[in-house]
Design a protein around this nucleic acid. Structure first.
Lengths: 125, 125
DNA sequence: CTTGCCTCTGACGTCAACGTCAGGTTCTAG
DNA sequence: CTAGAACCTGACGTTGACGTCAGAGGCAAG
């Protein structure tokens, strides 16, 4: 049994990314693909989860390079002192990012509050 | 009284950005500067707060174009239905961004938990 | 007056994550 | 069998927020 495989177009559609993006991910070492005799890529089902995870990390502001270093920890359960430190560092970075965004949001909230309810005087910015 | 003004290098140092960045901000219409007879930029003290605000919004993922549209609302208290909608939209975007980051962080937390305490079996990713 | 740092205006360079196009092969529906 | 969709490998284009360099002028100290 060879297992169910899909071609790049189908995976792209299912994962919600472009075909070009998948080829780029492969180029960066983020995903791998089997090849048919004629050279066409074919993916097994876990690929879609992996692609979605990659997207998640991209959206959190991680670079390809960082993701490449983290993926073995996340997927293959690599567990060394270095990998744990790497994970903790990125977790901390994301936490800081959330904190900054929260401050920015609160700042906007204050402005919105004022524009909807211009009661008190002007705020010094 | 002409007021205390600083040159671009000093403002850059105080605001924690590069001189090039300040010139870029001006080019984008985010800040304005007075000029000396010889053409050198000079800034008044509120400039530093404005620059810090701009940095805050950049870090929240807003583009120059968006910031240009929002700044009048935040600083000059512009208050039209459009400006309120603009503020609300960006606020919502930031909220979504926070939510996504939180999910990513929780995902990393689960991985970290497992790597520090490899008790239960493997997680399917 | 001159030395050395600061500033000016262009204008080209950078980097990441793809988009897009060219030119050719392969697969599939009819 | 054939048309058209999907795939392949290069390789160049794009965008935003600056970095960097060149060449020229400005300003305070000694």
């Amino acid at each position: 049994m060879v297992g169910v495989t899909v071609r790049i177009g189908e995976l792209a559609a299912e994962a919600g990314v472009s075909v070009r993006a998948l080829r780029y991910y492969e180029e960066q070492g983020l995903i791998t693909a089997g090849r048919s005799d004629s050279g066409q890529r074919h993916y097994r089902s876990p690929a879609i989860e992996r692609v979605k995870l990659i997207q998640m990390l991209y959206e959190a502001g991680l670079s390809s390079k960082t993701i490449v270093e983290l993926l073995p920890c996340v997927e293959a359960q690599v567990n060394t002192p270095e990998s744990r430190a790497r994970l903790a560092a990125e977790r901390a970075r994301i936490d800081e990012q959330i904190a900054g965004l929260t401050r920015t949001r609160d700042r906007l909230d204050a402005v919105i509050e004022l524009s909807e309810n211009p009661a008190s005087g002007c705020v010094k910015i």
